[in-house]
């Protein structure tokens, strides 16, 4: 189990995350839902351990072990993975090498994974992961990379952003694939179509967990209340 206990995070004088508690168990799908600017992605980065996202208070536990002080690499090696909202581009690195990442891996496994994310292997294996790939293609390559890492916990930050509407089904398929693998999937989104497929949701508002529970209930509340909410999100980051 991955657990966040009383996590706070500040940037300068601005407290962005204000003491949140969350629990994620393997084999389940979770959603972190909320409007733009409420701190959803920040929570994902804190869990992953990115260099600028060290909590100012609180602890993160993985299977009972405190991993708050573990580095990004160590957390990745412990089985946590992040699907970036806007993945970086790499000149001179082919899709095949990016997915292999210096590991011994069967070509067939890579090809099967590319097919899973709707990329035809013969067209993409030798292409570069550079700016010539469209945003959607790059996102799909990143999805394939996450799948091949076989994570225990995968944070999917806005998995549908930059991807055409026809590929929404593929995202759901990938989420179910992770679930079948026994991974805990943490989906960060503000899209109802994605959130509704998750089991448990955390509704975030202004850096706090405002509501949590069964996804259908939370999504319904979010739709009815948050869309037209006059509440000002004073977090300008993300």
């Amino acid at each position: 189990m991955l657990e966040l206990r009383d996590i706070k995070y500040s940037k300068g004088d601005n407290e962005i995350i204000k003491g949140i508690n969350m629990k994620f168990e393997e084999g389940n799908v979770y959603c972190i839902i909320g409007n733009n600017g409420v701190g959803k992605s920040t929570i994902g980065y804190i869990i992953m351990g990115l260099s600028d996202y060290r909590p100012s208070q609180g602890n993160i536990f993985l299977d009972g072990k405190d991993i708050t002080e573990l580095s990004l690499t160590e957390r990745a090696k412990s089985g946590i993975s992040l699907l970036w909202q806007e993945p970086a581009r790499f000149d001179g690195i082919t899709v095949e090498n990016y997915l292999k990442l210096n590991r011994d891996m069967k070509k067939e496994e890579i090809e099967e994974t590319l097919k899973l994310v709707n990329l035809e292997p013969s067209r993409y294996m030798r292409r570069y992961v550079d700016k010539k790939l469209s945003g959607g293609e790059r996102k799909k390559v990143e999805l394939a990379s996450c799948i091949l890492l076989k994570p225990k916990y995968v944070i999917m930050d806005e998995p549908d952003s930059g991807i055409d509407i026809m590929s929404l089904d593929m995202i759901v398929k990938v989420i179910n694939h992770f679930k079948k693998m026994g991974s805990a999937v943490i989906v960060i989104t503000h899209r109802k179509e994605i959130a509704i497929n998750c089991g448990y949701s955390y509704l975030i508002c202004a850096g706090k967990v405002f509501l949590d529970g069964e996804s259908k209930k939370i999504v319904s509340y979010y739709e009815k209340t948050c869309d037209n909410c006059g509440h000002v999100n004073y977090l300008e980051e993300e």
Partner: peptide
């Protein structure tokens, strides 16, 4: 680039390994 480094470190590479991977690509 820090984002490139962290992208690869979030996949389990150390900072040194990530840097080497990026440079090998740039110079290939």
């Amino acid at each position: 680039n820090q984002v490139q480094l962290e992208t690869l470190m979030a996949k389990g590479l150390t900072e040194e390994e990530a840097a080497e991977f990026i440079v090998n690509g740039l110079l290939s």
